[in-house]
């Protein structure tokens, strides 16, 4: 046993190294900001141009989902605006081919938790409270843990219901 100690140690550390690489790979696939079919820039639209969040996410205040806007809404401006940019040309390609854009979802709650955007907007929770400062996110990434403890802390501090049934229907 003593003779093989260095070998055992080497195997142990290589095992740990492989595991950390596996974790990194897993994080790159799921946790990092996913690459989108079009590199839509929140800093340009919400920052420089000063568009309100509801300009594109129109249903956020009146339905459980914030929803991604239809291509037709993008085309209202991009029929004429910035048509020389490659990313806008990609958008126009989708429009001309009448194809939907398969945006990658960034914020995903587990199936057993129900979240309603409308209720939170009505309660005066700012979008940035959960989604961070989109004006500074070139590529959107998850900036909150979305863990239950976090949700419950906020509910408690605002005297919102903390009944299990509120979120787990």
């Amino acid at each position: 046993m003593k003779r093989y100690l260095p070998l055992i140690l080497v195997a142990y550390f290589i095992g740990c190294l492989l595991l950390i690489l596996v974790l990194a790979r897993q994080w790159q696939d799921t946790g990092q900001a996913p690459e989108q079919p079009i590199a839509f820039s929140h800093p340009i639209h919400a920052g420089n141009l000063g568009l309100e969040c509801t300009y594109c996410h129109q249903t956020v205040a009146r339905s459980p989902q914030a929803t991604v806007p239809p291509v037709s809404l993008c085309m209202e401006c991009h029929k004429n605006a910035a048509i020389d940019r490659p990313e806008v040309q990609k958008l126009r390609g989708f429009w001309e081919r009448q194809e939907p854009i398969h945006w990658q979802r960034v914020y995903q709650l587990p199936w057993h938790a129900v979240f309603n955007h409308k209720r939170h907007i009505k309660a005066g929770v700012d979008c940035s409270f959960c989604h961070g400062e989109l004006k500074a996110q070139a590529r959107v990434r998850q900036v909150r843990s979305l863990m239950m403890g976090w949700c419950v802390s906020c509910h408690r501090s605002r005297n919102a219901p903390t009944d299990c049934w509120t979120c787990h229907k």
Binding site: L9, V10, F13, I14, C16, L17, I20, L21, L23, A24, W27, Q28, T30, G31, Q32, R141, Q142, V143, R144, S145
Partner: peptide, 20 residues
Amino acid sequence: VYTLTSPAFALGAVTIVLLG
């Protein structure tokens, strides 16, 4: 998930090699 970055993983891997 919002705390992780590629350099953090890389540095973690380097640390494990040094520990070895």
